[in-house]
Amino acid sequence: MSDRLADIHAIRDVVALYCRGVDRLDLDLVRQAYHPDGIDHHIGFDGTVDEFVPWLGRGLEFLAGTMHFIGNHHVDFVGDDIAISETYLTATHWGKPDQGKANFTTGARYVDHMERRDGRWAIAERWAVREWTRPDVFVAPERPGPRGTRDADDPLSVLVKRFGV
């Protein structure tokens, strides 16, 4: 039997990797969260990871940014190499000031069928379950300072490049 705490950590890291990929518009990270034959069920989408990643990319390019906050996370194991993961999250989406419908926050759950294959946990099938949505109004930054970007100028990208991570 495997070390359950290490498995839980690895599964949670898959969810965090996915969220980082979405928020940084790094579709390679999003793809890494899934097994190659993974399936995703999102609002407005239902299909394979090979179909999902480009679909997601088209939607994210319309937005100026997103920020996912991961909350409660629970894992139920089905044997050693299959798990059901439920992750509560809040995700904020924003566009340009004139894109009213692009500015919203949603409460959701990722209900994931996770599998360990060749020692690596990843999503075999995901349901992105939206529980609620509310419109948001965004304002211009109040002062100069670091701002997140979805390119090589983002502070995370700068550090990753500097240290070769």
Rank of each mutant, 00 (worst) to 15 (best):
K161E: 15
I82K: 07
G95F: 02
I11T: 11
V158E: 02
F138I: 15
V158P: 00
F104D: 06
D7M: 08
K96A: 14
G44S: 08
A33H: 08
H41Y: 06
A10Y: 05
G65S: 12
V158S: 02
A108G: 14
F52Y: 15
G79K: 01
D112G: 03
D46N: 13
T87F: 04
Q99V: 05
W55S: 03
D112S: 07
L25P: 04
R116S: 07
R120P: 09
G145P: 03
A152S: 12
V158N: 01
I39R: 14
D7G: 04
R147D: 01
R126P: 04
D50A: 14
E86Q: 13
E86P: 01
R126D: 04
V22W: 00
N103W: 14
A108L: 15
F77T: 04
V137I: 15
V75Q: 00
G100Y: 06
L25Q: 13
W55H: 02
W132Q: 02
L29I: 07
T105Q: 08
Y110V: 11
D37L: 11
F45I: 04
R4H: 07
A122E: 06
G107L: 05
G44M: 08
G145N: 01
G65P: 09
A140C: 11
D3G: 09
A10W: 05
S157D: 12
W94E: 05
R4S: 11
D50L: 09
G164L: 10
F52R: 00
G21W: 11
A124E: 06
E142C: 10
Y34D: 03
R20K: 12
E51R: 01
V160H: 04
F52L: 13
E86I: 15
F163Q: 07
P54R: 00
P36I: 14
R126M: 00
A10C: 09
P36Y: 10
E61L: 08
A91F: 09
V75K: 01
T92N: 06
D23A: 09
G21N: 08
F104A: 04
G57Y: 03
D46E: 15
P97A: 12
T87A: 13
L156G: 03
